[in-house]
Design a protein around this nucleic acid. Sequence first.
DNA 1: GCCAGATTAGAATAAAAATTCCAAAATCAC
DNA 2: GTGATTTTGGAATTTTTATTCTAATCTGGC
Lengths: 282, 282
Amino acid sequence: MSDDNAPKSIDEVFSRISQQSDSFPKRLKQCADFVAANPDRVAVSTVSELSESAGVQPSAFMRFCQDLGFSGFSQMQKVFRSDYSQKWPDYGTRLEKLREHGTESPSALLAEFVEVGRMSLENLMTSVDPAALEEAVKQLARARTIHLVGFRRAFPVTSYLGYAFEKLEVPTILHSGIGGIKLDHTIQPDDAVIAVTFAPYSEQTLEIADIAKQRDADLVAITDLVTSPLVQMGAVPLLVAELDVGAFRALSASLSLAISLAVSVGAAREKLQFEKNMLHDN
Amino acid sequence: MSDDNAPKSIDEVFSRISQQSDSFPKRLKQCADFVAANPDRVAVSTVSELSESAGVQPSAFMRFCQDLGFSGFSQMQKVFRSDYSQKWPDYGTRLEKLREHGTESPSALLAEFVEVGRMSLENLMTSVDPAALEEAVKQLARARTIHLVGFRRAFPVTSYLGYAFEKLEVPTILHSGIGGIKLDHTIQPDDAVIAVTFAPYSEQTLEIADIAKQRDADLVAITDLVTSPLVQMGAVPLLVAELDVGAFRALSASLSLAISLAVSVGAAREKLQFEKNMLHDN
DNA sequence: GCCAGATTAGAATAAAAATTCCAAAATCAC
DNA sequence: GTGATTTTGGAATTTTTATTCTAATCTGGC
């Protein structure tokens, strides 16, 4: 019954999955995806637990195991279990180990950035003022159009915001500076601007922020310090203290703040829309 | 039968063991010692496997579990298993939590994203294979030009890479799709492509990755699962298991991986350049 | 829209594991 | 050394889990 060409390690399982997964029918593909996404759970769960989590019947999971070359689930689980104990010395020790080896290897550098990212995220909860965040959401929710301004290091933040707002169907203009075309003049009194910049502050961003203020548009700032020019202009300040590794600043905290902001604004706008509709109906 | 004063965590189990182990008879002490020495095996083994390794009868192991306050082995194993998988709680409970706390206050949402980001980062250390990372750095270091491909949700990652590589003075082309202009034809055999895409995978990204392979360019993939089409194409896989909050995927881990990759490549290229110069001088 | 083949769901069955039980052995007090 | 008490080993039982089987459903070609 049991093929002797059954995978012998988790890596083999994975490569087999990536080879075959295209030719799998729907349910088996579900199994493949679930196992690929949750390899650790295979070691400590039963067929029915896994199949339920994967949204399939136990028998489907069974076929999945067999299609991979195992005699059944038990054989597959054995492979996952033997790898399991190697994983046990967890993240903490792993990180330490990498630190010892110095900044030589890319993995050590990765560990460094991971650690810094975690610290930045931790900081974020204290550096962002909840009241300011709520005010920002309020302003952005009522804006006709939201303008996103941020260049160079800040551009990933604005482009992520652009993606999120598009998905949320919030009218948004991403000021990308492509082709040297300035979009400044598209800013109107009912609009709001999210300006993202960190020290040393981008001239271009400050200029556009200034124009926004002149036109009586709302201004929300994602920036690093209270001394930021954006704050002085009277922007609603969302402060992110991001840490550096070498010459590079991590962006984890800024991105997390950005996505939270976007989702909150999306929810707030929906609520606003709903209330407006109710008003009309009555 | 089951005491409700059963240990709830592995730590509790250990403290109970150290309290009681003196008063245990010989065989039960053997069990205690074995569990203390091999906590990782408890989660993935059966009673008979453990009892055999500990040099006792299954029934003795059974009594050991009960003397610790558990109803039996199964209950004890559950504690050991959940303690492990708690490190990566499943989406289901996460999402539920979010719904409970609601999108009530933006701060609550922010807290959620921070938490998810921290987890993703933690997991990044185990999901990225150090060998693959090194291989990726090697390929990118020797590339004449590095192409960055990633759209929509992945675009912040590629734009961040673009920024970093520019700062590091690494020749880079960011395939942005602006103006509908395709940059595919700029990919040449000595080049390398960093393709970033997560399920559901972007057609456009896969197309360009495919072209890269056809032209014999190196291909590095930042993606989420081994089942990713990029992996099947033979790309060097850097796997990031990012968690979703609602419909949105955090990007903390991907960004951290990206910046680590960029800095490592920058360093490797400098070293390569230096070695070339030395060769010329001599 | 109908048929052939593939795929699936769910019940039925087989296997394996946990748990209990009890007689045999060991330990201890006297 | 003897009897009472604790501890142990191993088989018997119960429960859980893996696995198989079959009827029903779906899918793709014509």
